[in-house]
Amino acid sequence: MAIQIENVTKCFGRLRAVDGISLNVKRGELFAFLGPNGAGKTTTIKMMTGLLTPDAGTITICGHPMATDSQIAKSRIAFVPDQPFLYGKLTAREFMRFVGEMYGIDKSELPGRMQHYMDQLAVSGYADQLAEGYSHGMKQRVVLAAALLHEPDVLVVDEPMVGLDPRTARKVKDIFREWANAGRTVFMSTHTLEVAEAIADRIAIINHGRIVACGTLAQLKEKAAHEHRLEDIFLELTDPEDPPEMEETVLTS
């Protein structure tokens, strides 16, 4: 398993942001994580990437528990947040070199890899300019290229398509798909249901900190007993007026 989440709970004061969720994501899987605002997606991702510690439960990345073996677990994972962070006074090339050295990529190998991912994500044109002048989309591309640089086993992305132009968005979708086909794992949190519908192998929907559905698109449709689009299923499962019973909708994990 690439990602194992077992009975994880996280509370902020009285608020139970994540409420005993369990998820298993296999190697070579492109997994979409959906949910309305405040459902617990970002908290789950922050716990997966080691930014937050769960109050209960365990998270394991490629067999390494994040709680006890975090340094190795973190070396196997890459995280692309929804608000991309870059040092304003560094160029994209300097930032990527820093990330490469951080993850211990061989010096002889580093320039080639950097150039490859910069070309792939069309970063090369502005790679030597300071990041403070980049647009959101440009930053997103640099951060994604830097995340791919150490070729992590698990790529966690939060809202990957925000701010990207259609051509780059298409490129990113292709990369994710190819990445998963190559035996790696992509864990993607998104509000863009069309993207999840188009490329995800499996989809989980979280609401009020609990997983209300998890399975392939076909399984979700089958269980929802209609052939509607993912959007309809999502709206039905996260309806605040009529919350579904969890046991009925959790399909596989």
Binding site: Y87, G104, N181, A182
Partner: peptide
């Protein structure tokens, strides 16, 4: 190629990131 399973062997942490790396940054 974009993603080549053969070449993309998991990157090993050959050298541990250090204080000096961050200071250089």
């Amino acid at each position: 190629t974009a993603i080549d399973a053969k070449t993309l062997v998991p990157a090993t942490t050959r050298t541990e990131p250090t204080f000096w790396l961050l200071l250089r940054l």
